[in-house]
Design a protein around this nucleic acid. Sequence first.
DNA 1: CGCCGGAATTGATAAATGTCAATCCAATGA
DNA 2: TCATTGGATTGACATTTATCAATTCCGGCG
Lengths: 234, 234
Amino acid sequence: MDMPSPDYPEVRRLHLFSGMAGEHYGALMRGAYVQNFPPQIELITEGETSDFLHIILSGSVDLFSSWNGRETSIATVRPISTFILAATIRDAPYLMSARTLEKSRIVLIPSQDVRAVFEVDNEFARAIVTELAQRYRAIVKITKNLKLRTSLERLANYLLQQREQAGGASAFDLEFEKRRLASLLGMTPENLSRAFKGLRPYGVSVKGNHIVIDIDKGIERFAKPDPLIDDPDS
Amino acid sequence: MDMPSPDYPEVRRLHLFSGMAGEHYGALMRGAYVQNFPPQIELITEGETSDFLHIILSGSVDLFSSWNGRETSIATVRPISTFILAATIRDAPYLMSARTLEKSRIVLIPSQDVRAVFEVDNEFARAIVTELAQRYRAIVKITKNLKLRTSLERLANYLLQQREQAGGASAFDLEFEKRRLASLLGMTPENLSRAFKGLRPYGVSVKGNHIVIDIDKGIERFAKPDPLIDDPDS
DNA sequence: CGCCGGAATTGATAAATGTCAATCCAATGA
DNA sequence: TCATTGGATTGACATTTATCAATTCCGGCG
């Protein structure tokens, strides 16, 4: 299962690593290893200190958090990207837990190696800035979405985002379980069901995880998508 | 009102600038200026592109955001610290607006200068990483607070935080208007009033903006503060 | 001092969201 | 094929939160 010193060109090509010195990259990878995880494995538990920087090569990972017996999904990580970079850099406890959603292949780089290379490789430091700035902006958008919109509006905008991602096709499939989607959107599964019904007048129909949107029925007028909340990048 | 080439030692001492080369610091400050703003001035409007990195020397600034006629406060910035760093670094549109809450003195550094120095000064780049990681973690906590807690729980934890900040004193004053507090906590002013009443059984009494907490009445047991949500630092 | 105006509070009500229990449904495996 | 199982849906209901309107409170000012 383990695989020492992985040499995945796609990792090297990641923005985070592409500019750094070869020897530093080598130093990072010497201590790293790759592992395949089955679905639903908890990779990281919030509150623990950061031992490894994680990079997901395939599959998907749920970042979630718990308090007082409640739990909520905060984001989904997809290949190829790192996660829990901020905790690694600050050598601080994880604020979120992480679990595989499906079978996933993940690179683990010891946090102390990351911090050591960060101290000596300037391009790596600069790449981390870009990465962190992007993640910061992503979660600002999540917060705005939560505070400024009702659950119906959040769902409508989520569907428009997915539609966009499917190349603007009128039909597409939901990318994960509805109960997890509900949690991401900050509502209960029961409420998500009702929200889907609530969007029917705007041309949304649902069959299992298959969605069809009749774009002429005014969903955009209802959702009022805003690049400052809904654009995944920028 | 304007003041070219400011030389505030407290700016130089900021973690963000303390490690960088003197000439680079000088280059940043040559293009910078300091300005005094009255209360309620909008310094930054979301959606615009980042012209200046802002540093607050005195006073306080509200970061807020709007959508579809609604508005919400997201965070408060206090001296001495920067704000809207991520947008500056990425040369991307602001995701939040900023307004002074009181009379405030603010340093403005042209964003292009910041980016130019970022490219050549390695210590500066590393300092930005630390700063961004910290801000990222701060907003993750904000999101967790919003998604995992009811408004009553958010208020209870906020009060415990303030109490802590007042040195654990049984009495302290709220630091800003209740309607703004309501917005920060994600509720309406009316609801905040009722939430204060709802905490009365737990030993919270309110008179204007003066708060007294009888800590033995079980507010901590109710609030269940959690460092992974409520600790301002780490 | 008394008036004014904005914020805060209160009450009544509505809307949004959550909870609980009872199905329904679709995928899985014997 | 059928039984099992877990997610999804539905209905009934409770709770939370928002809205609207009417005071009340309080600080500044004439």
